[in-house]
Design a protein around this nucleic acid. Structure first.
Length: 420
DNA sequence: TCTGGGGTCCTAGGACCC
DNA sequence: TCTGGGGTCCTAGGACCC
């Protein structure tokens, strides 16, 4: 049996946890640059706010219902996530952290009778220790646990926990769940299934295997088996190394000059390098991209990228910054209003397996020592306190974050004050 | 005026090898 | 009239996830 623990409206709940005045109020949390709605409290969902909707389009609705609006505060959400996960880890050694707000828990060794009670205890403990409400779905496969979680969230009398513990229950859940709710069925597959009169999850689970294989590849077939109760996906308790790492941002304001964008590109390159060092990897492929605002049909558009292959895989910020800025200048053109830039690194290998090059002139051990020192300092006194000069200090391109809450849990000067 | 930022996996087709 | 049989690697594109 698997349990899927999923935080309810996670970002909105994080904001609410530190501000009791938000209880029962509609809350929306915006994406980076205060662009789209990416999290909603139940009250906001009920008012009709949609996931991914641009905030400016619903400004009227926001004002009308006095909705509490927040810029996303990933420092806060990341730390709250860790607290929730730490709490879950107390309950089972078998835990897969699936995303910032979800974890699968292996329930091996629990007898069937105590399983549901155990999950209710998990739920009560998480909310007591962190202030974050969670829902828990329990079933024989991960895909069914996802659906069970859905039921736990939607149906009030479940009280946050739902267990698919019999064939009858499995059938009942699948029959009333549209295929759009299945983990692994997105927009395109949902359309395809609908076209073939497969409307409910039950219809899909009972469809011909050969047809599923042909139209939805082996991935779809696996999903179908999981819905039938045959477990194909196991608990992934060790996080695999990333195969590609990306750092990109939209700019708070459109940029026309090369210099500020070059500084942004240098900053993103440096962050990619830091992410590589964190997973003890190096990379030898680097891509830089820049583009204008594609939504602005009234402005001339420009988008380009450049891929560079380095002679030796590296995770040195200095090397990445150097190559990234060079690549940027080779694609930058005057006369456009740029909205976004980014860096992708690929060709990732473990630090210990880097293929060296007999013509290499870089002093790698010195660079490594320098990066280690840089990471140590920044971990101790704050991220990016020491950086490469090319990254600049003006930050003309910085994010728009007009509704940012304090970092209650990670910054001393932001710590919460309680009046008694 | 304002529209996010990360990732994964699978398949088909082309280039190449013996 | 006849035209092999077996592979690997890489990339682009399309699906999906949070």
């Amino acid at each position: 049996m698997f349990a899927l623990v999923d935080c309810n409206n996670f970002y909105a709940s994080c904001e609410r946890a530190f501000n009791p005045g938000l209880r029962d109020r509609p809350i929306v949390v915006l994406s980076n640059n205060d662009g789209c709605i990416i999290a909603r409290s139940n009250e906001a969902k009920a008012l009709g706010f949609k996931m991914g909707e641009p905030a400016y389009k619903v400004k009227g609705l926001i004002d009308k219902h006095q909705v509490a609006v927040f810029s996303s505060n990933y420092t806060l959400y990341g730390d709250m996530s860790q607290r929730v996960m730490n709490c879950l880890a107390e309950f089972s050694p078998d835990i897969e952290i699936y995303s910032i707000d979800e974890a699968f828990i292996g329930l091996k060794g629990f007898d069937l009778y105590e399983m549901e009670a155990y999950c209710r205890k998990i739920r009560a403990t998480v909310i007591r220790n962190t202030g974050i409400p969670v829902s828990i779905g329990i079933a024989a496969t991960k895909t069914l646990a996802k659906l069970a979680n859905h039921v736990a969230k939607k149906e009030k009398d479940c009280d946050g926990v739902f267990w698919i513990n019999s064939e009858e229950k499995r059938k009942a859940v699948l029959e009333r769940m549209p295929v759009t709710e299945i983990w692994g069925v997105g927009r395109q597959y949902a359309r395809l299934l609908e076209k073939h009169k497969l409307i409910t999850s039950w219809d899909f689970a009972e469809a011909g295997e050969e047809w599923v294989r042909q139209n939805m590849t082996v991935v779809g077939l696996r999903t179908q088996k999981e819905l039938r109760g045959i477990s194909c996906l196991s608990l992934e308790m060790i996080e695999p190394d990333k195969k590609a790492i990306c750092t990109s941002r939209s700019f708070g304001q459109m940029q026309t000059e090369a210099q500020p964008i070059a500084e942004a590109v240098a900053t993103f390159a440096s962050r990619c390098a830091a992410k590589l060092r964190k997973q003890k990897s190096c990379a030898n492929v680097l891509m830089v991209f820049i583009h204008t605002n594609a939504f602005r049909k009234d402005l001339p558009q420009y988008a380009r990228n450049r891929v560079i292959t380095l002679p030796v895989a590296t995770n040195s910020s200095m090397e990445f910054v150097k190559y990234a800025v060079m690549a940027f200048h080779s694609i930058f053109q005057e006369g456009y209003q740029y909205k976004k830039a980014g860096i992708v690194v690929a060709g990732i290998v473990p630090e210990a397996c880097v293929q060296s090059n007999c013509f290499d002139e870089v002093e790698r051990s010195k660079q490594a020592q320098l990066m280690k020192t840089l990471d140590t300092i920044n971990n101790a006194i704050g991220s990016e306190k020491v950086k490469i000069a090319t990254e600049g200090s003006g930050r003309k391109w910085k994010l728009r974050q007009e509704k940012l809450t304090p970092c209650y849990t990670t910054r001393w000067k932001d710590i919460i004050t309680v009046n008694t």
